[in-house]
């Protein structure tokens, strides 16, 4: 019987280490904090990690602006004071009449339109190519893309390819997925993304004016659920984006002030984490 020599195993271990380094190189990059302790503590790196993919799933069809808006605000958090170029990849809008980004509204979300490089593609395959090439280039630190049609190509393998490239050059990709992506019936399981967020719109703080029948609305508010995160603690937050100070704050949910009647149960709010666990 042949005896396996010790050095051989050491060598193999080193080789395995070598294979994994490309994924771990992003540990050296500082993460982008939300500056909210309850959120930052739930994330493994104390904030949104760079050199990774982050996925955003709208709660339903109408929540697409909420998911994209939340991701756009995160671009501001990731960019910080530096003027980083942002590669914005969107699908052609000939068929589905989806809206396109409007530059005059972006400063309210903390993105300077001068930094925007917009690439319009026809289909998901082209989009994945653009994202892959963008992440492979050392000059492209921030990418945002929205899959606005039912997903066909994006799966674990595709996301793994993207995240390997992201880790190598420190690029960060914010990917808005189709609203049915998280649905158990879609048959698509996990991806290699670092985090996945479910985003739904929430009514904003009403502002009451004199002589007005309907109140005005305050800062945009979303229910943000961290549904998937390695080494993180999934949770749900009510977030508000202050478009004056360009920062996040937590919004206390409104409560029903009416006294609870006998026999009435408080209906639970939509909870994606619980639903995912049940599924």
């Amino acid at each position: 019987m042949r005896v396996i020599k010790e050095p051989d195993i050491d060598l193999l271990r080193e080789q395995i280490e070598g294979l994994n380094t490309d994924l771990r190189s992003n540990a050296s990059l500082p993460s982008a904090p939300f500056n909210l302790s309850s959120l930052d503590d739930a994330l493994p790196d104390g904030g949104l990690s760079r050199g990774a993919i982050h996925e955003f799933v709208p709660g339903n069809y109408a929540d697409y602006p909420a998911a994209l808006g939340f991701a756009t605000c995160l671009l501001h958090q990731l960019s910080g004071e530096q003027n980083l170029p942002v590669l914005w990849c969107s699908m052609g809008r000939d068929l589905d009449h989806s809206p396109h980004s409007y530059a005059h509204g972006l400063p309210f979300l903390g993105v300077n339109p001068d930094n925007l490089l917009h690439v319009e593609v026809k289909n998901e395959k082209d989009m994945l190519w653009v994202l892959e090439e963008g992440l492979s280039s050392p000059a492209c630190p921030l990418l945002i893309a929205a899959i606005t049609r039912p997903e066909k190509t994006y799966d674990f393998t595709a996301s793994r390819r993207l995240s390997l490239r992201a880790a190598r050059h420190g690029g960060t990709l914010l990917l808005i997925r189709h609203h049915k992506a998280d649905h158990p019936a879609s048959g698509r399981g996990s991806t290699a993304a670092a985090t996945r967020w479910a985003v739904t719109s929430r009514p904003s703080q009403p502002i009451f004016f004199e002589n007005a029948k309907v109140p005005g609305f305050g800062y945009p508010r979303w229910q943000v659920a961290l549904t998937r995160c390695k080494r993180g603690r999934p949770n749900i937050w009510q977030l508000e984006w202050n478009n004056e100070t360009l920062s996040f704050c937590l919004a206390a949910p409104l409560v029903d002030r009416a006294p609870i009647q006998n026999g009435q149960t408080i209906t639970a709010e939509y909870n994606p984490v619980r639903q995912a666990k049940q599924a």
């Binding site: 980083l84 963008g134 280039s137 000059a139």
Partner: peptide
């Protein structure tokens, strides 16, 4: 014309990263 990333890519010199992004956009 484009803002140059002055970022965590210290190893990349200024001209290099401009050139990189030009090349990327040419391919797109």
């Amino acid at each position: 014309i484009l803002p140059v990333p002055l970022t965590n890519f210290e190893r990349e010199s200024h001209t290099n990263s401009t050139q990189e992004i030009d090349r990327l956009l040419d391919r797109f």
